[in-house]
Amino acid sequence: MSSSQKRISKELQECMTTPPTGMTISLPSESNLHTWAVKLIGPPGSPYAGGSFNLSVVLPPDYPFKAPLVTFATRIYHPNVTNDSAGSICLGMLKAENWKPASRVRAVLDAIRQLLIEPNPDDPLEARIADEFRGAPREFEKNARSYVARYASGKK
């Protein structure tokens, strides 16, 4: 599996030099290329604007043949992210049957940012939040903002 090292370091280098929009990427441990820490700035215009979210990206040993594992370390109020400390994300391209080895972490991160701008209530992890997003968008925005203020304002 060491052939994946080359690919991972190349991807990491690209992401460090020209980071995806609204993100900074770092390695929590320099010796471990398989765990990335991502800081995502809430996209302007979305209810998450002004927030700063930490994500964890774990690349499995047989990456890129297996999909990376991406989770929100910061709590977030969103139809497609579990409303708990696990912060699991429902994203089509991360599912085993959809993942293609030619896909890149950058594309995954871009898709996650896009998910903050445009939640996908048809494929929810939190059905209640999805219903609210559809039925009471103002209420949803208020809740999302209050989560940002509580968990993602940058102060720990």
């Binding site: 052939s3 043949f65 049957e97 293609k100 080895p101 030619a102 594309a107």
Partner: peptide, 28 residues
């Protein structure tokens, strides 16, 4: 893609996921 990667991709699809008729090109 290089032969090794293609091979590993197919092996994983067939062995681990039991996929056959619907194995797609590895490109996104």
């Amino acid at each position: 893609y290089c032969v090794d990667c293609y091979r590993q991709y197919l092996t994983q699809k067939i062995r681990e996921e039991g996929e056959a008729a619907r194995i797609q090109c590895p490109a996104e």
